[in-house]
Design a protein around this nucleic acid. Structure first.
Length: 455
RNA sequence: GUGGUUGUAGCUCAGUUGGUUAGAGCGCUGGAUUGUGGUUCCAGAGGUCGCCGGUUCGAUCCCGGUCUUCCACCCCA
């Protein structure tokens, strides 16, 4: 066999034990909070039918889908003419009918429709699985990454929006990450597009104003013009984007003046008022802000949109989501509304690692290690080990009788908290020499005392 | 998908204006120290200088391609 270079594909990574322990710490907190709020776990396959995935994420999203090559002699079904035509998009349908999931929301919508009779509404689920995007990797941007989604489907109540904000607040509080939560509503954006007379250009308009704080008003206006938004409309947009004041003041201004003639716009304002009303009654660590320039690209959002960023590190959003009124519609189930947000575990990891947010004890999993002194001692230690494990303490016995220095070194590298030394003396006296690896102290104690101490 | 950037020991990086044997620190292995690790001292192992091709008497260095990294755009977790 030819010698292969050991490598993983672009934008993918291996995780070492030290990293996995920290990743699991993040997953555990997220999962625990999800369950506190009454969400139940599901999983879906890594791959979906291509038809399930395409057309849900906009043109850009379709481009980023990983497709899986069909098996068998798929070229046999294609005529020579079709091959010579070299129409990639047309040929794709012959070559590939499965794709790796791009997110967890669309597969979830498919799941809901497929299992309609097995679930009860409102259906609250969470899902922690990897997704794949054929993006150009950068820092905090991978081709394979884990999303942690929470969604409620089958309820229009804004209570769900409020609950999701609570979940976000609690998770980041528990992780110790400082964040900014921004909220907006697609209906307000639609209303604005409507009143400036460019209702059909809602998507390019939202994408452009999303960049306001990044590239400035001048460049945004340029982009709007390029996308065919009229000069008059751009002019009318300016005072709207310049709105200042408290959440209430902004919403009043929108309701009473700007969106007076837009039914959908006023509905969006109503929703925001109600949502912020709920939020006021919560005791949140971070107060979410109303950001009129927040847009978010995914095509399927129709109401509230939410995005969370780190205030300590420059990296893409850590969490994002929103309400989608008809995502199940394309799978044949009309008028079922859902809302959900997705936590990016990998970016959360990057922030926590960079800012030193991991508690120290997340780096160790073994509490006690027995030194190996030879065959007789091994047998003796094995029975002690069994007792210790039975009482819930993580413990191991070094498998080889090698120099003590090497065994201690192993324990040290692995951040083992205590080392037990049991040789002839200890065996005779039914004692264990217990060494604390942090302080270096050691004492001879009985098994019972040891278990009490480490429990 | 567009433009740029990076790649030398396990890790972080020097270096060679194209010329015999490519270096450091950390780490690793062994010893000082055969029941006490993280300190110290001594010794040692480890590199087709990302991969493929071209130019050249000769390439780790120049040129082309490719993979990878990071960055900006795009988009997003």
């Amino acid at each position: 066999m030819a010698k292969n270079e050991a490598s993983v594909p672009k934008g993918t990574r291996d995780f070492l034990p030290g990293e996995m322990v920290k990743r699991n710490y993040i997953f555990k907190i997220i999962r625990t909070v999800f369950e506190h709020f009454g969400y139940l776990p599901i999983e879906t396959p890594a791959m979906e039918q291509v038809s399930t995935l395409t057309g849900k994420y906009g043109e850009e999203g379709d481009r980023l889908l990983f497709r899986i090559l069909n098996s068998g002699n798929f070229l046999g079904d294609i005529s020579d003419d079709e091959i010579l035509e070299r129409n990639v998009n047309k040929l794709k349908s012959f070559l590939s009918d499965k794709g790796l999931r791009y997110d967890l929301t669309v597969p979830f919508a498919r799941f809901v429709v497929q299992h309609l009779n097995e679930i009860t509404f409102p259906f609250k689920r969470y899902q922690i699985q990897p997704v794949w995007r054929a993006d150009r990797p950068q820092k905090g941007r991978y081709r394979e990454f884990f999303q942690c989604d929470v969604d409620v489907i089958g309820s229009n109540s804004l209570l769900n929006e409020a609950e999701q904000i609570q979940i976000i607040d609690e998770i980041f509080k528990k992780l110790g990450i400082k964040i900014l939560i921004r909220i907006n509503n697609r209906k307000i954006l639609s209303g604005i597009a409507e009143v400036i007379g460019e209702a059909d250009k809602i998507i390019p308009i939202t994408i452009a104003i999303d960049k306001l704080d990044k590239i400035g008003p001048h460049k945004v206006n340029e982009e709007l013009a390029v996308k065919g938004v009229s000069e008059k409309a751009i002019h009318e947009l300016q005072p709207i984007l310049d709105l200042t004041g408290s959440v209430g003041e902004k919403l009043n201004e929108l309701e009473k003046k700007i969106l007076l003639r837009s039914g959908i716009g006023r509905k969006g304002v109503d929703e925001m008022k109600k949502l912020f009303g709920y939020l006021k009654t919560f005791d949140l660590e971070v107060d979410p802000i109303f950001d009129l320039t927040l847009a978010r690209g995914l095509d399927y959002y129709t109401g509230t949109i939410i995005e969370v960023n780190s205030t300590e590190m420059k990296i893409g959003s850590l969490c994002g989501g929103g309400r989608y009124d008809d995502l199940t519609g394309v799978f044949g189930l009309k008028d079922v509304s859902g809302i959900g947000v997705s936590f990016g575990a990998d970016r959360i990891y990057d922030v926590m690692e960079k800012m030193g947010k991991f508690p120290e004890d997340t780096t160790s999993t073994t509490t006690l290690m027995f030194v190996n002194f030879g065959e007789k001692e091994e047998i003796h230690c094995l029975s002690l080990l069994a007792e210790i494990r039975k009482s819930g303490i993580n413990a191991e016995l070094f498998p080889d009788k090698v120099r003590l220095k090497k065994q201690m070194n192993y324990a040290n590298k692995k951040n083992v908290e205590y080392v037990a030394l049991v040789g002839e003396d200890e065996m005779k006296n039914r004692l264990i020499t217990l060494k604390n690896m942090k302080t270096g102290d050691h004492e001879k104690i009985k098994l019972k005392e040891l278990i009490e101490k480490l429990s």
